[in-house]
Nucleic acid binder design. Structure first.
Lengths: 319, 319
DNA sequence: CTGAAAGCGCTTACAG
DNA sequence: CTGAAAGCGCTTACAG
């Protein structure tokens, strides 16, 4: 009898003992699935890391943001009594049952008109985004990233450090981070009557984009050459730094380089590279907190504010 | 009728269409839990990263091994049509149903007499270890790590590079990696009539152990001072390198330093540090393959051989 | 205090 | 071709 095992009803100790013994003997183990069936909850959260789609490898070298997110989220989930599942796209045909069985979803960096958000919202599955769907701002519960403010912060720093002409290198994924950063530099440039210098290169290309970026910005009119390049990803920044050095430019004297999201790589390279610390652990913990509330049927209202990114000043921008 | 929706039986197209329409209208979504109940399978794998227990933070700086493992495992699982759950200890009281609902488990670096393995095997839940339970070798299905061979490979390299007296710094977790490495250096030292120089310091201390390690090995009889220190973790190696430098030792001339598991940190530090590449991605993929077989009821027999670790030679051991 | 029954939301034989 | 029934393995009221 289940009362004995789960200690719910009032059962004689003797009976409990006897039943527990037998249970142990036959190696009885209650099916977590059958249990979950009652309240249709498994105690499962899912982290959908959308940009996995665009990364050719999971190698975290220079892209530790997502792995730090995943790790912190898993740990935070456990602390709330949930498990965390890592998936990339639950809308793909042939996904396992489990990919749809989470009590709530966290979607990091959704794409423009992301089908994952569409599916989740159509099926009334609770979810929270980290970064908005750029095409549907305000439509879904989201933790705001403030990519615009972050960009402004970095531009202000570079400007203070003596840069006059700042170029931006973003990734090609159409997510909030890439798009809002672009908007921010365009606005910033135009307010100074400058033609915005922007280039988008695939995230997955990593360090390999260095020469292409240098070619793009340093081939035309010398008056238009940047004296600072802000790359959103640490790997792009590393590639640009290396390419600039190869071309005989001194960093930071001739060219400053900074990254919007760094890894240890940027802290130990020569020169070390200025980065933003996006606080992925804090964001992940916050997202888990919200997902747990959603999973438990609570209403959560925005705006959801995260800890601000901070600037890690390093040699590459220290003139 | 379910036949219409899942396309199993023979149903008129017309009926299918009608039912699908209604389903869409009412926002019907089949419960993955109820579905899973039939064959008591959810398409869920679990990765139990035991050393999480000992790490004070999930920050991957210098410990990217586990995160790389987690990432690669998640991706590999998806490719096999499974989801991957990240948990640290399913034996803890109060774990969610889901933590026990996986079809198969991968346990990385189990401890000595690890209760997780005990539970899993008692409950007849299929699992595969990465690294053996040091107290129960051969008892459970395990992917062998060859920590002993790895240690020998590193010792041979250091020896070739000119080291005469090599010290080993391990973590304090009682897992295969730490223990087998210790055994290997003891054997190696004794065969040369040398007193083994071994020290164990907590994994979680990371770079902070530098001075303690230097004190330990450089305080006594100068004849016993090592001219090479092999740290199993990259963070320990980084700490030792820094401490040695601070004391005026030149690396590698006066002291060589190497790590058994490195991260990007060791590739970009000054000097760069020689490490083993343990191939976590390959191991994770292999583990997932096995877990999938187990989940599907196939028998898997050992010995399970992994790709060999390779040596990344860097400045810290280049005399 | 304890057993038998109903129900969680599906799927899969089994009648009509 | 389609509907009604049984069953997956539990939990939770509900009788005895």
């Amino acid at each position: 009898m289940s009362h004995a095992l789960n200690g719910k009803g009032i059962v004689r100790q003797e009976t409990i003992d006897r039943i527990e013994q037998i249970a142990a003997e036959v190696g009885y183990r209650p099916s977590p699935i059958a249990r979950g069936l009652q309240n249709s909850k498994l105690g499962l959260l899912a982290l959908v890391i959308r940009p996995f789609h665009s990364l050719d490898t999971f190698l975290p070298e220079g892209v530790d943001y997502f792995l730090r997110t995943a790790g912190a989220a898993s740990l935070a989930a456990m602390e709330h009594g949930y498990s965390m599942m890592l998936i990339d796209d639950p809308t793909k045909p042939g996904v396992p049952f489990s990919a749809l069985a989470a009590d709530a979803y966290i979607v990091t960096e959704p794409f423009e008109n992301d089908p994952v958000l569409t599916m989740l919202s159509e099926q009334r599955i609770p979810f929270v985004c980290v970064g908005e769907d750029p095409a549907r701002r305000g439509q879904f519960l989201a933790i705001e990233e403030h990519a615009d403010t972050q960009t402004e912060m970095m531009l202000a720093h570079l400007s203070d450090a003596g840069a006059n002409r700042i170029a931006l290198v973003t990734g090609t994924d159409r997510n909030d981070w890439n798009l809002a950063s672009q908007t921010a530099i365009v606005r910033w440039s135009e307010s100074r009557n400058l033609r915005p210098l922007v280039m988008s290169v695939p995230e997955a290309e990593g360090e390999r984009v260095g020469d292409a970026v240098m070619d793009e910005f340093f081939s035309g009119d010398p008056a238009e050459h940047p004296d600072a390049i802000y790359c959103l990803t640490g790997r792009h920044a590393a590639g640009v730094t290396a390419a600039a050095l190869r071309r005989g430019l001194r960093i930071p004297q001739d060219l400053m380089v900074a990254a919007g999201s760094g890894s240890l790589q940027n802290q130990t390279s020569t020169p070390t590279v200025t980065t933003l610390d996006l606080k992925p652990e804090a964001i992940a913990q916050f997202a888990v907190e919200i997902a747990v509330k959603l999973a438990e049927g609570q209403r959560v209202k925005g705006p959801l504010v995260t800890p601000r990114a901070t600037l890690n000043l390093r040699q590459s921008t220290a003139r």
